[in-house]
């Protein structure tokens, strides 16, 4: 079953065609990776899917619904979660609060409930804490719940960003270069974490990553982009032996 579909999507910045007539499908439950040189348009694809940019041409479907032009907060509520290439945590909120705020954007109570601390307020607040602690536990961050997010070491900030995204209960998670700036041990750790996420949360993952070992190891399928276009698509095996890919990308490594 198709969870996400891009149909002939283009995005221009002035004269630059950051994404050019791109089409692909993400199947429910798979891990699909997008690779390609810097500036290929990968992050722009994420920004289009999560509503930060509106495509100049083409359409995007999620669960068969046309979501082209939807606002990002609405897409989050529909089940599209994401992380950012350059970490965007709420640095001056605690680790726990970073996750709670994500939970509370979907679990609502009103202003009156807040002002008078009604039963509903108390119940949802309790649930939010429990749920957030669960996510922190999953990522091994529970002992740091009272730290300011900005004070965590880099690798843990990456994990916290994943925890925050998962707390919105997404159906698909877009992860942008999670291994950037990590050493080999951290990358192995990340690989285990990503596998664990997929197995635990019954979730679909769309991953942007440069680290080839990681990509080849966990992806079911890979899309290769160059100059805003898709130049190849296939299993890790097929991609490794594709001459176009070797020329544009892998050869350069």
């Amino acid at each position: 079953m198709n969870l996400l579909e891009l149909k002939n999507v283009s995005k221009y910045f002035g004269g630059i065609k950051a994404v050019n007539n791109l089409s692909f499908i993400v199947k429910k439950g798979e891990i699909l990776s997008i690779i390609g040189p810097n500036g290929a348009g990968k992050t722009t694809v994420f920004n289009l899917i999560s509503g930060f940019y509106i495509p100049n041409e083409g359409k995007i479907f999620f669960n068969s619904q046309d979501i082209t032009g939807f606002k990002s907060h609405k897409l989050s509520r529909l089940g599209i979660g994401r992380t950012f290439q350059n970490l965007r945590l709420f640095k001056n909120l605690t680790v726990l609060e970073n996750v709670i705020v994500a939970f509370l954007s979907k679990h609502e109570y009103g202003i009156i409930d807040s002002v008078f601390r009604t039963r509903k307020y108390a119940e949802i607040t309790k649930k939010a804490k429990e749920s957030a602690r669960g996510f922190l536990d999953f990522f091994g961050l529970l002992n740091k719940e009272h730290f300011y997010a900005g004070n965590l070491p880099y690798g843990e900030q990456r994990k916290l960003e994943l925890a925050r995204a998962l707390a919105t209960e997404p159906k698909i998670l877009l992860i942008d270069e999670p291994a950037a700036g990590m050493n080999l041990t951290e990358i192995n750790d990340l690989m285990e974490t990503l596998k664990k996420i997929r197995n635990t949360f019954d979730i679909t993952i769309l991953l942007i990553e440069h680290q080839m070992e990681l990509v080849m190891n966990i992806s079911e399928r890979i899309i290769v982009m160059d100059f805003g276009e898709k130049i190849a698509e296939g299993t890790p095996k097929e991609i490794k032996s594709n001459p176009k890919v070797i020329e544009a990308y892998l050869g350069a490594l």
Partner: peptide, 26 residues
């Protein structure tokens, strides 16, 4: 009470990073 509620959390999150706040559904 408002600051301690989800609205206060949203406000502080927005001050930290408005784009990230919208990405989690605010």
């Amino acid at each position: 009470n408002l600051i301690d509620s989800r609205f206060g959390l949203f406000w502080r999150a927005i001050k930290n990073d408005e784009l990230a706040a919208s990405s989690i559904g605010v």
